[in-house]
C-alpha cells in the first residue's frame, strides 16, 4: 500500500511540475524617465509641459510632469533627486532658497544664483525663458524665470542643456501672458505643443 501512496504522490507532483516553470529574479535594461516638477499654477504648468514636450518629441526620452506644492518643496525634491528639473525664478532662488540678500539688477542676480546653485547645490540654471514675473519676486529683487536642472541629469543626457536652451529668450512678457491665459482655460500640454509647433521647435 505504501508503494501505491508513493505512486499517487508522484502523480500529483508530476502535475505540479508540468504546469509550472522555475522561478527566479532577473533584471533588464530600463529606460530613464525624466521628471519635471510644476507648481499648481497655469504659468508653471504650461512651462513644465513645454519642457516635457520638447524633450520627449526631439529626443524620444519619456518625460513625466508631476505636481509640487511650492518652491521650497520643489527645491528639496531636486536635492533628493526626485525631480530632474523645474522652473524657478531668480529672486526666489536668491532670497527664499539661498537665504541671501536681494539683488535688484536682473543680470547680476541671474549670475549670482547660477554660480551658487552650481557650486553649492549641483543644480544648473539654464538660459532664462525671456520674461519676468513680479508676482514671484521677493522685495527688492526681480523674478526672471529659467529651467533649473540637476547636474547629474545633464551628465546622463549630455545634449539636454543645448536642447532646452533653445527656449532661451523665446518667451517675452506678453507671450507668457497669452500662454498663461490659454493654459488656464484649456489643457496646458496642448497649449505648450501648439506654441512649440508654431515656433518650429518640434
Amino acid at each position: 500500500m505504501k508503494s501505491l501512496r508513493y505512486l499517487v504522490l508522484n502523480s500529483l507532483l508530476l502535475v505540479l511540475m508540468m504546469t509550472s516553470l522555475s522561478v527566479s529574479s532577473v533584471s533588464a535594461c530600463v529606460g530613464k524617465t525624466l521628471v519635471v516638477g510644476a507648481l499648481d499654477d497655469p504659468q508653471q504648468q504650461v512651462l513644465a509641459e513645454m519642457l516635457s514636450v520638447l524633450i520627449s518629441e526631439r529626443t524620444g526620452t519619456t518625460v513625466k510632469v508631476v505636481p509640487i506644492k511650492g518652491h521650497a518643496e520643489a527645491h528639496d525634491a531636486m536635492i533628493r533627486a526626485e525631480l530632474d528639473m523645474y522652473i524657478e525664478y531668480t529672486g526666489v532662488g536668491q532670497v527664499t532658497i539661498l537665504k541671501d540678500q536681494p539683488i535688484a539688477d536682473s543680470d547680476e542676480l541671474y549670475k549670482a544664483v547660477k554660480e551658487r546653485y552650481n557650486q553649492e547645490l549641483n543644480l544648473i540654471w539654464l538660459k532664462p525663458f525671456g520674461f519676468s514675473d513680479a508676482r514671484y519676486a521677493p522685495e527688492g529683487t526681480v523674478a526672471v524665470a529659467a529651467p533649473v536642472v540637476r547636474k547629474d541629469t545633464l551628465k546622463k543626457f549630455p545634449a539636454l542643456a543645448r536642447l532646452i536652451n533653445k527656449l532661451g529668450g523665446a518667451i517675452d512678457d506678453s507671450t507668457m501672458k497669452e500662454l498663461e491665459v490659454a493654459s488656464a482655460a484649456g489643457n496646458p500640454r496642448d497649449v505648450a505643443r501648439k506654441f512649440l509647433k508654431e515656433k518650429r521647435f518640434i
Partner: peptide, 28 residues
C-alpha cells in the same frame, strides 16, 4: 487518480493550460 493526473498533464502539453500565470520566471 493516475488516469486523471495523466489526462491533465497531456491536456496541458497538447492543448495548452488555460491562464498560465508567470512572474519573474526564467526559461532555460
Amino acid at each position: 487518480l493516475f488516469f486523471v493526473a495523466t489526462t491533465f498533464v497531456l491536456a496541458s502539453c497538447t492543448l495548452g493550460a488555460p491562464s498560465l500565470k508567470l512572474k519573474d520566471d526564467v526559461i532555460e
